[in-house]
Design a binder for these strands. Sequence first.
DNA 1: ACTGAATTAAGACACGTGTCTTGGTCAAGG
DNA 2: CCTTGACCAAGACACGTGTCTTAATTCAGT
Lengths: 354, 354
Amino acid sequence: MKAAPGPKRVIRSTAEFASYVGLARTTVSRVLNGHPGLKTQTVQRVQQAIEETGFTPNAYALHLKGKRTATIGICMENLLTAPAVLKLAELQRRLRERSHASLIEVLPPGGSREVIRHFLSMRVDAVVFIGHFVEEEIARRIDELMTHATPHLVIDQRGVPHADTVALDRASGMRELMAYLLGLGHRSFGLLAITGAARSVQDRLAGIEAGLAAHGLGFAECTRSLDHLHARQNDFEYGRALALSFVAEKNIPTAFVALNDEVAIGAMHGFQSAGLRVPQDVSVAGFNNQDICLMPTPLLTSIDQQIELTVNTSVDQVLSQIGRPPRPHPHVEMIAPKLVVRDSTGPAPKAKSA
Amino acid sequence: MKAAPGPKRVIRSTAEFASYVGLARTTVSRVLNGHPGLKTQTVQRVQQAIEETGFTPNAYALHLKGKRTATIGICMENLLTAPAVLKLAELQRRLRERSHASLIEVLPPGGSREVIRHFLSMRVDAVVFIGHFVEEEIARRIDELMTHATPHLVIDQRGVPHADTVALDRASGMRELMAYLLGLGHRSFGLLAITGAARSVQDRLAGIEAGLAAHGLGFAECTRSLDHLHARQNDFEYGRALALSFVAEKNIPTAFVALNDEVAIGAMHGFQSAGLRVPQDVSVAGFNNQDICLMPTPLLTSIDQQIELTVNTSVDQVLSQIGRPPRPHPHVEMIAPKLVVRDSTGPAPKAKSA
DNA sequence: ACTGAATTAAGACACGTGTCTTGGTCAAGG
DNA sequence: CCTTGACCAAGACACGTGTCTTAATTCAGT
């Protein structure tokens, strides 16, 4: 639009900027920091010059003068899993609302200490972890942060030693789901990809067991898993393969509970391609309540992670810890998930294993 | 694990660190910067102390001494569209490989200048834009960056004035797709959500037209669009609704080309639920080649964005511009997309509109 | 123990900023 | 004219770091 509105030299310091405005550096500094005792005309002159030049004080020099960096380090396990990215997006948004910047790094399993070192060298005010990390590794990173008086928060990975945590109460989510399915008359359950030593998996299993126990049912008798039959993937294809394996069995469960939505949708496709109707013949439930729940027919029943609530709680937590002495004991807060019933779950078929 | 291996006081400067090691600050500084003329034993003593304390020099003070910040600002339109996030992930990874940090901000449409101001105040070495921005807005941001001698790069939004750009050649992708479909005998095409003034849409239309023209066919006669019949959404549901509207018409096209994979998959579901077989009755092609192409039955033919190549090129571009005088003319580089043929496209049905 | 080289200590300055202090200008009021 | 504020200019210092300079220490070789 505008060709060349003036000399437009690059201004790199308050000194240069002050000479551009025609004021002393100290005066400009006082204007920038809102000190009293300045003529309105002077303030306006500076503000106009800022508009013209787009001058911004060097954040690095500011911090050197003791100002907080107002930067939060965000450590992601990866940027490829949809729920984690959603949390990142919401976290970034909330932090920006509260005038904080986000310095994002990806720390893959076995990743080096470099990432934490970088956070420390950038003097971030706190570090937030999102994803599922190797417990031993993340615990060591957090110890390192604590020795540097840098607050931290782990989102959605319960059980890291010494770690302040905000995590989804997966056990309660599964209890709720089981209560719902049991109420529909289901008594035999197929578990899809809910295997492994990870805490998040163990929590789910505990919730399933508790849900069954509330109806006087035993875990071993009522549940079946064929996870071992295929290479573990936790994705769509794995779900489809598991479904087909279940179809090949004699007594197929009437309800299926999946590790996540991808596996659930894959399983639905598997059942459907084998001629089973969902939910008339089998019910299927996912986990995470991602957008893809709306993609298959029928729409997938799932458990919502309550990402907004989780992130909101997390931001409050982590910002409140900045500049404070570390807590004597880690603060752990659990978020209640929410069952979202859609069309993939329904009453148990009557004449089945009778 | 370890209880308290020493005093573990927080070390905030080379001075404190030097007194911890028992050396002069200047000596420590020389070790840290790899100067010659130091006893091996001294170097080791410092390195060991770094291991013990995790000391890191203040990046802010470093920059103040003229060192580059080695930080790239990444400006995202949002963090909710899968392809954009994939680019972000790859970009972050590449930059980290090249020892650069990523400062990520989200700039929604109509967003303020704050974001650019923040980048400038953080003295980022360059700014990369990912997403589809309002052309006028992004052009102004880039002008502002240029007056501050900060290089920039726009990824995948062709046509921003004065902007260095690396973008997907959507026209050529569509040409290739059309050549493929025409080769299969298709002569009537349904366009799904390819409407609007956005350059990325216009490029596709131009590619479609060119593809048809290469076979001596006219755009108006061979293509049909019903986008106006439903509220524009560019998602799964929109695709499904469009498909059902096409089914309700008299002469349904034999091949469908969609704006993206979501719309394509939605359309496939729509056709299938109306009793049409894919690809026997209608062919459907998506765009972006996201993971979800593997979710429906049949697997979706799509056009791959070549994200790795795009990002790789971008990183080379942007890093090479750091510290250099701005180019006289913007550098625009086009990336050739790649047609990925799967199962959703096949020969045109024979006894159709004859 | 003495010399000379090797190594380290110690002080200074610069970077860009905020803030304190001191001195100067200017206009209004006497 | 002088006094009094109100305002601004100008200098100084600090923050943490790299680097230069100069002085002090250590060490190896005699």
